[in-house]
Design a protein around this nucleic acid. Structure first.
Lengths: 108, 108
DNA sequence: ATATTATTTGGCTATTTTGCCAAATAACCA
DNA sequence: TGGTTATTTGGCAAAATAGCCAAATAATAT
């Protein structure tokens, strides 16, 4: 049986991945890959309540994925660990692999 | 504002990542990287009810991350898209980056 | 046929996550 | 100071997720 140490390791990993596991948060990460953005900019793009976006950002910040910097009345968020962008290519390949299988089922 | 197409894309991506966002499921993926395993083997390692493990496997299968193959009375699961293993190294770097920051705060 | 082993499914409760609103806080400007 | 804009926080209700048990299904062996 998995020991305590192993369990902790996988819990820590899951916490990071869980922080990414939401469409709005993935979108935020994608946007930040083009450079820092303030909460208001992101809110405009996402189209949820500001408080909702702020909470999504808090989740990302809390897990160590983004950084925040207050300048004047705005808070700018940026990617702290850009390698999270690598996730996208693999996720894309899962999606297209799924799509190929769907096509295969429809063949003939 | 994000258009429908973009929204769908990020929802599809989130679905895949969500499938990975659980300690038991990450553990399963890690184990499968060493080769296929049957439900009973995984259950022994994880230490939850078989039905729970079976449901975790269903989540992974449903999102296209693993494959299943029934042989006799057992079902063997294997990785369908091995690139998901790349996630680990980035997740690890987020974790160690967090740890470094913690240390920094404690300095002096 | 019956029993046994492996796995999945249904159903239920407990927990977590989401997203909105309203209110609090912070920084700036008039 | 008082007002305005940007952001966060608290609180709540709805939705999704997790994990257990019991029962159903599947394959095999006796």
């Amino acid at each position: 049986m998995m020991d305590r140490k192993t369990k902790n390791l996988f819990e820590a990993r899951a916490k990071i991945i869980k922080a990414l596991a939401h469409p709005a948060r993935l979108f935020i990460v994608d946007q930040l890959s083009h450079g820092e953005k303030c909460v208001c900019e992101l809110t405009g793009m996402i189209g949820s309540d500001v408080s909702t976006v702020s909470k999504h950002l808090a989740v990302l910040k809390n897990s160590g994925i983004v950084l925040d910097e207050k300048r004047g009345t705005q808070v700018f968020y940026s990617l702290r660990v850009p390698c999270v962008l690598n996730f996208f290519s693999c996720v894309e390949s899962v999606i297209s692999s799924n799509a190929r299988d769907q096509l295969f089922l429809l063949k003939d």
